[in-house]
Design a protein around this nucleic acid. Sequence first.
DNA 1: AACAAGTACAACCGCACCCAA
DNA 2: ATTGGGTGCGGTTGTACTTGT
Length: 389
Amino acid sequence: MGRSPCCDKVGLKKGPWTPEEDQKLLAYIEEHGHGSWRALPTKAGLQRCGKSCRLRWTNYLRPDIKRGKFSLQEEQTIIQLHALLGNRWSAIATHLPKRTDNEIKNYWNTHLKKRLAKMGIDPVTHKPKNDTLLSSADGHSKNVSNLSHMAQWESARLEAEARLVRESKLRSHSSSLLHQLTTTNPNTYVLVNSSSSGSTSAQLQIKWPSSNPSNNNIDLESSTSTLNYNSDQTNVNNASSSAVGSAIMKPAMIEFVGCSGSSETKEECGDKEEDWKSHLSFTSLGLVHDHQTITMSMDAGSAWPTATDHQVGYVAADMAAADQEGFTNLLLNNSDEVQSLSDGDHGGDSDNGGGSGSGSGSDYYEDNKHYWNSILNLVNSSPSESPLF
DNA sequence: AACAAGTACAACCGCACCCAA
DNA sequence: ATTGGGTGCGGTTGTACTTGT
């Protein structure tokens, strides 16, 4: 479709902003809000296009922006999130308070990427540059695949979260959405947060439709499931500030804590609650925001291998109360957890690792471990002191 | 002091998505 | 279903600043 030009009008100024322009923009927004960016320049008396004004505001003038050098923790977070998310700067930025995606992107391109390259680590894959052959030449491909699944899962989840942050003003509709979901879609699985705040593992309750007890039969041992995030589906329930991913759950990441066995039926699990509930604990993946709703479509045929009549179930997660910075804290404060993210064996202390935990403690996992350790060690050491930098 | 090379970062560009008309 | 405005996002460029020679 055609697009009307934004910034190529004759007479519109480009290039660096002057203090006077900044002042005009600030004064206008403080008084009126930005409203329509396209109309703003005229109203504010600026010879700029609306897009330029928006960028100047969001990346520089906004009062809630923190400027200056990145801390070591911020660097760690960027590196680790980049390993998971790639160049999804906006998603990464949601975990760095007061930093803009643009700033993070620039910092990555000018500092961190070069550091990793000097370390002999591919800044794109976050693997040692000679690791590709190693990992594909032997039986580690499955582990690589599992790692990839986790990264995709985390990527999808964080992306969803980023959307939620952006759409936080719609949060107040979450409750009605959940109600709507459960009342209008009988095939809806509603995940209701049940975690305690401060925990680094978000604990979710999954509320199965009472008419379908057969869905209880979740095969947590599947080692072939994959996770695919399909951004094209983001319009499903989008009006409810939800993000949607087509998720085929990585079983190793899930642990039932409410009912002792995944094969338990509703009856076996007890009927104290109105409906049968299972509890999912996303160990080591505990980032949630207050009162946000995430909706994901679950390909029942693969993710829930034994599900019967549900091709797709919609999972709405009201992920409340957990520590908003849980994931960041996890990354920064618990290197073991970081390793567990990277080594694919979710729960070095857990035996529910599906196929990935095949017990052989693969060299690949060790490599990943060493990689994360090397990143952390290098980042932790002062750049000015390190000969590498 | 002058110049070149390297670095950092603000700003721009274009595409994609969402949504209302 | 189509169109077009508004906006978000990631990649790239331009320029000011710093460092080295």
